[in-house]
Amino acid sequence: MSRSVSALVALLMLALAAPAPAQTKNSKPGLGIGRVATPAEIAGWDIDVRPDGQGAPTGSGSVKAGEEIYMSKCAACHGEFGESAGRWPQVAQGKGTLASHDPVKTVGSYYPYLSSVFDYVRRAMPFGDAQSLSNDELYAVVAYLLFLNDIVDDKFVLSKETWSKVKMPNAGGFFEDDRATSERSFWGRNPCMSNCRPAVKILNRARVLDVTPDEKKPGHGVD
């Protein structure tokens, strides 16, 4: 490296080490990159809804109106009664199954908050036609989902005003990650290195099930 180049590098490094000009000029922090998002821009994308109903849009929808929307836009995948058509998610029933060998997780059996389902439908459903429902349609179809799960009666109208009336059956079914205590035994032990267990037996083999994809078929690769 020539002397002039190394001098230049040294200068550059000094410049980098110095505080950015934007920080010294303005009293407020930041680099001055980007611009302020306008209220209109934010309103167009701000679709999230919290458990307390914050973010829920204006509008309302009845179970009755929801039935019609559900039958035309949802039932093909989720089944007329929410029982699932084929491999798509089941959205109704399943109560009392969570501690069984085959838990069925649905809006009624598993979702802890109304917002968890409302926010999801609002952003992602109908599958392949996301964010196409009007606010009234959205309220209606979620009201119908609640009805399919026996959470509300057939006269129910869902809106911001009735939001807090909805009691989700599995609201108390969750607790915060407790691995640090409940799985304490996985930490800190000096793992055994020799003669750690009696002779080992094979209990079960993958081949018995034979569910591994056949890689000879070209269709299985994802390009």
């Binding site: 501690a99 802890p112 389902v117 926010d119």
Partner: peptide
């Protein structure tokens, strides 16, 4: 936010149903 992904999915169901 307790979104669907962090409640209905990506939660770890234990043997007692919690």
């Amino acid at each position: 936010w307790e979104t669907r992904e962090e409640t209905a999915k990506y939660t770890d169901l234990l043997a007692d149903g919690k």
